[in-house]
Amino acid sequence: MAGERLLTTIGFDADDTLWQNEQFFRLTEKRFAELLGDHAEPGHLSERLLEAEKRNLGVYGFGIKGFTLSMIETALEVTGGRVPGEVVSQILAAGREMLAHPVETLPHVQETLERLAPTHRIVLITKGDLFDQERKLAQSGLGDFFAAVEIVSDKQPETYQRIFASTGDGPQRAMMVGNSLKSDVVPAIAAGSWGVHVPHELTWVLEHVDAPVGEARFRQIGTLAELPALVEAIG
Rank of each mutant, 00 (worst) to 15 (best):
R31P: 02
L142T: 09
R96D: 14
G192F: 10
E51P: 01
A33I: 00
Q20Y: 07
E97Q: 15
V209C: 08
I234G: 03
H44C: 07
Q139V: 02
R31S: 13
L18K: 08
F218A: 01
S70M: 09
R96P: 00
V177A: 02
S193T: 03
V59C: 05
P107H: 12
F218E: 00
R217E: 11
A233L: 12
Y160D: 06
K65W: 04
D210M: 08
R173D: 10
F24Q: 03
V198H: 09
S183K: 05
K155F: 11
Y60R: 00
F218T: 02
E134S: 12
P187A: 06
G85W: 13
K65T: 15
V109Y: 11
R219Q: 13
G80H: 05
A216F: 09
R162K: 15
L181Q: 03
L36P: 06
G170S: 10
R115C: 12
A75Q: 09
A138D: 11
H197K: 01
A93Y: 14
S46K: 14
L6T: 13
R219C: 05
L227M: 04
I151A: 08
T17P: 01
K182Y: 04
P42F: 11
T112Y: 10
A33D: 13
S193L: 01
Q110H: 12
A40I: 02
G95F: 14
A211P: 08
L130W: 15
H208R: 09
H39P: 00
P84Y: 03
I189K: 03
A94F: 15
L36E: 04
S70Q: 10
D15S: 11
I234S: 02
E207N: 15
D13I: 07
R219M: 04
R55M: 11
P187H: 03
E41G: 10
E207R: 11
L142C: 06
V209E: 15
A33W: 02
F164S: 00
M175Y: 08
H200E: 09
I151D: 08
E47K: 10
G80M: 04
R5I: 01
E53I: 05
T203K: 05
E111D: 14
I151E: 05
L130G: 00
L7Q: 04
H120M: 01
A174L: 03
L181M: 02
A40C: 15
D13M: 10
F62K: 02
A188E: 03
L50S: 09
L116S: 04
E34V: 09
L124N: 00
L130K: 12
L181G: 02
R5D: 13
V152K: 11
I64E: 07
F25Q: 00
G58Y: 05
E29A: 13
Q110F: 09
A191V: 06
A225W: 07
T126C: 05
E53A: 01
L36G: 07
E47R: 11
